[in-house]
């Protein structure tokens, strides 16, 4: 693949903290290599801003290999940018061409308040997991790992749902800021396994209740979440979530 360098205009959301109002600032960056990652381009810009005595742009990032779920930029109207099934840290500058203008915003959702610039607070996701996104098994209680065979098809589907990295792109993509795909992924991961079966009903109900409490919107099934998901979590998981919820509600004797 041909390497090339480019000059770009960035319009980046700047916001000092959760209380102050934010605004877009424009930055020009030059000689950006097509081989750089998007975040490395931000590193270069930040290095310049620091040297110039300006405030660098705050953004969340950690593993830079697409798995920790920490990075979260809304680029040109798409969570994680233009590439499909991708995180910002794995987006490379060859996705852009010389002269492009790139608009970068934080995840926007009531349940994800801005901390600074592009950094948001996603602790709502942790609280949803606390509400039931687990199997209650204390250390030391386990039977032999091969004691319960699991049909490969279900194990694979469970794994595909468990691949969620909890980044919140689904919420950012949704016009209603719904967290249904995130919750559906966890409910599916656990409901598809025999080990998750005993708590199936209570889990789905309490996770949904917590999701509502956090201020995430309702799902109107536009599939924007699936399109934005870096791990390609399928919306069929939302169908499964709805099914689980209905079954739990109908069968509940509480």
């Amino acid at each position: 693949m041909e390497h090339y360098n480019m000059n770009l205009t960035l319009k980046v959301w700047r916001q000092r903290n959760s209380k102050e109002k934010g605004r877009f600032e424009t930055y020009k960056v030059e000689n950006i290599s097509s081989e750089m990652s998007f975040l490395e381009m931000f590193d270069v810009l930040n290095d310049r801003l620091i040297t110039e005595g300006k405030d660098p742009i705050a953004f969340d990032h950690d593993c830079r290999e697409g798995i920790c779920g920490m990075c979260s930029m809304y680029i040109n109207g798409k969570p994680h940018g233009p590439w499909k099934a991708n995180t910002v840290c794995q987006l490379h500058m060859r996705a852009f061409k010389d002269g492009d203008t790139i608009v970068v915003e934080p995840w926007r959702a009531k349940a994800f308040p801005v901390i600074k610039d592009l950094v948001v607070d996603r602790s709502a996701f942790d609280r949803i997991i606390q509400a039931g996104g687990f199997i209650s098994v204390n250390t030391g209680n386990a039977v032999d790992a091969n004691a319960i065979p699991i049909e490969k098809e279900n194990a694979d589907k469970s794994f595909a749902a468990a691949a969620c990295i909890g980044c919140g792109a689904c919420v950012a993509a949704c016009k209603n800021s719904s967290a249904m795909l995130f919750v559906a992924a966890k409910v599916s991961h656990l409901a598809l396994l025999p080990q998750g079966s005993p708590e199936r009903k209570t889990r789905v109900v309490s996770m949904i209740n917590q999701m509502d409490k956090e201020g995430f919107g309702a799902c109107t099934f536009t599939n924007a979440c699936e399109a934005a998901c870096p791990k390609e979590i399928l919306v069929t998981n939302i169908a499964r979530l709805n099914h689980e919820y209905m079954m739990a509600s109908f069968e509940s004797d509480k």
Binding site: F134, V137, A142, D144, A145, I150, S158, H189
Partner: peptide, 22 residues
């Protein structure tokens, strides 16, 4: 060996063969 047992009990979806075993 206990680790694998514990993780499976927690719902860690390890790769499986068609017979359903790990």
């Amino acid at each position: 060996a206990n680790i694998i047992d514990q993780c499976v009990a927690q719902g860690v979806p390890f790769a499986r063969e068609y017979g359903g075993l790990l």
